[in-house]
């Protein structure tokens, strides 16, 4: 499987993402935000960090960068995309995922490992888990408070598009939502960091299954 990791000024989880993807067996290309075209890849990963210093709103400036037009085109062609943390914020700002991420309800930056519930295994990202599994992923964000209007929320639940929820909601997200899927289930946005949970020496390996499952699905595709 070929994957691209987008690098914005202020990205800081881009190399972690590349390491996690490579460990699962992907060929990884790093792509600078000023590039207008993506290489031919199966998956685009939009990493965590503080792109453009979180100016205006988290992810808002990145969403207007040249490469994001390429990311939108990739997704519209049916390509896969994974946005983690700031990457999730970028994907909501581009409109590829519904809703928005607001300032944490407690106003504090939260940096700790949290327990998540896997809500659906019906996606390439979560097929290696079983719905109802709990996993421990780190979170590190100031603006992870997911919100969406009532109609959108009902759609997410009705279409089984909530991928992960928090066991103990740290940030005020509506219905404890930690990660959601797009309508075609090929785009996952989540605040917690699976790529920081792929090495036993770094506090856990619960994220490995996400990358392993993704590689398995996309390599067979």
């Amino acid at each position: 499987m070929r994957a691209a990791v987008i690098v914005f000024p202020g990205s800081n989880c881009d190399r972690d993402m590349a390491v996690a993807l490579k460990a699962a067996g992907a060929d990884v290309t790093m792509v600078w935000h000023k590039d207008a075209e993506l290489p031919d890849v199966d998956l685009v990963a939009v990493p965590g960090g503080f792109s453009f210093g979180d100016y205006l709103r988290c992810g808002a400036i990145a969403a207007q960068s040249p490469i994001c037009k390429g990311v939108v085109a990739h997704v519209e062609r049916g390509g896969y995309a994974l946005g983690v943390c700031n990457g999730f914020q970028v994907l909501t700002e581009t409109g590829l995922l519904p809703g928005a991420l607001m300032r944490n309800a407690g106003l504090k930056f939260i940096c700790k490992t949290v327990e998540l519930n896997v809500v659906t295994s019906d996606s390439a990202f979560t097929e290696a888990y079983t719905a109802g599994d709990t996993v421990d992923f780190p979170v590190a964000h100031h603006d992870g408070n997911y919100t969406i209007d009532a109609e959108g929320l009902a759609r997410l639940h009705g279409e089984d598009r909530v991928a992960f929820t928090y066991g103990d909601n740290p940030n005020g997200s509506i219905d404890d939502i930690a990660g959601i899927l797009s309508e075609n289930r090929r785009v996952l946005g989540m605040m917690p960091h699976p790529e920081r949970a792929v090495d036993a020496g770094h506090g856990g390996t619960d994220g490995q299954a996400l990358f392993r499952g993704l590689l398995g699905q996309l390599t067979n595709a």
């Binding site: 205006l56 808002a60 207007q64 928005a100």
Partner: peptide
């Protein structure tokens, strides 16, 4: 609409 405000929120 396109940049200055996120009209979702």
């Amino acid at each position: 609409e396109k940049l200055l405000a996120n009209t979702v929120i």
